[in-house]
């Protein structure tokens, strides 16, 4: 059998070639890409600018010398590096246990119908978006003055802990939620209690996700400066903290202090310190991504 193709009466009607507004569509796509490109280009320029500007000071003076107002060529950020370590150590000490426990309560224990749990949940969502300077006010009024902890490492640690608590809770809940329900059921069906199930099965399975979220939360705390402005970090500190009740400064605060100096050497120093801070944050993010990739898709 041979079929003959009859030409359609109206060739226009079956024209399948693209028509309409291809130019507009193409332009639209380019505009969208440009939107994305602006952000990424900005990031690239920022990184290039601080690296080039800070390059002359990216040497051991930065981490082995103390800040100095009078001799910028000798100034370093040692006290800020140690201050950051101390403050973040206390932040982790307070925020991790409370964050993990809150998340376990909300995800593993609370019934979906519990009004208390829903209230806590909305509260956490709101806290996540409260401006960081407001946490500074809280730290100033409650920790520094009412509890008389003063402008110390521990005040800063407690304040930043409350600041990152919502981030840790949200990330931990996500990690717990990713553990398949049938692991829990398998454990409970053996006569394990709720806590045994959580402790022996759910949490170990969620640890990679919890670690990732925790690292990201702490890296946020490391970069945070605003609340610490109210908590005494701006004072000139040329010694390393010696304990929880020591005065302190941190890297972001040290950067801020140097931006306020008019001499160009200090701007170079600020750039070098920014590079150092960004390298630390980048390393933390890389670790987080590594953990995530290494443990992805186990079930």
């Amino acid at each position: 059998m041979t079929a003959t193709l009859t030409p359609p009466a109206n060739p226009e009607a079956v024209d399948l070639r693209g028509h309409g507004q291809p130019v507009v569509d193409k332009a639209f796509r380019w505009v969208l890409f440009l939107c994305l490109f602006v952000g990424i280009a900005f990031l690239a320029i920022l990184l290039a600018y601080v690296t080039i500007k800070g390059w002359p000071r990216l040497d051991s003076r930065l981490w082995t010398n103390m800040p100095s107002i009078r001799r910028p060529e000798q100034a370093g950020a040692e006290s800020a590096i140690f201050g950051t370590l101390w403050v973040i150590g206390f932040t982790a000490l307070f925020a991790l246990p409370i964050g993990f426990m809150s998340a376990i309560y909300l995800e593993e224990y609370a019934k979906p119908t519990s009004r208390f749990a829903r209230f806590v949940e909305v509260n956490i969502q709101n806290l996540a978006a409260v401006p960081s300077i407001v946490y500074g006010i809280l730290g100033l009024a409650i920790f520094a003055r009412a509890l008389a902890l003063g402008q110390t490492v521990i005040t800063a640690g407690l304040t930043l802990a409350l600041l990152v608590l919502p981030v840790i809770i949200v990330a931990t809940r996500e990690a717990l939620r990713a553990v398949p329900q049938n692991i829990r059921h398998g454990s409970l069906a053996l006569g394990a209690t709720q806590w045994q199930t959580t402790w022996h099965q759910t949490m170990p399975a969620a640890i990679p996700g919890m670690a990732t979220g925790t690292i990201l939360a702490l890296s946020r705390a490391i970069g945070e400066a605003a609340p610490l402005l109210l908590l005494g970090a701006v004072t000139f500190i040329s010694f390393n903290p010696t304990g929880p009740f020591s005065a302190y400064t941190t890297l972001p605060i040290q950067i801020y202090n140097w931006t306020r100096e008019s001499r160009e050497e200090f701007q170079v120093l600020a750039s070098a310190t920014i590079v150092l801070l960004l390298v630390i944050l980048l390393a933390m993010n890389a670790v987080a991504i590594l953990i995530r990739n290494k443990t992805q898709k186990r079930w």
């Binding site: 809150s102 909300l106 806290l127």
Partner: peptide
């Protein structure tokens, strides 16, 4: 354990409460 977990969850409530008190008074 359950009590401790609930207590931990209330820390976020106290945070909000602390913020309100510390700005309000």
């Amino acid at each position: 354990i359950k009590g401790v977990l609930v207590l931990a969850a209330t820390v976020s409530l106290f945070t909000t409460f602390g913020i309100v008190i510390s700005v309000l008074i």
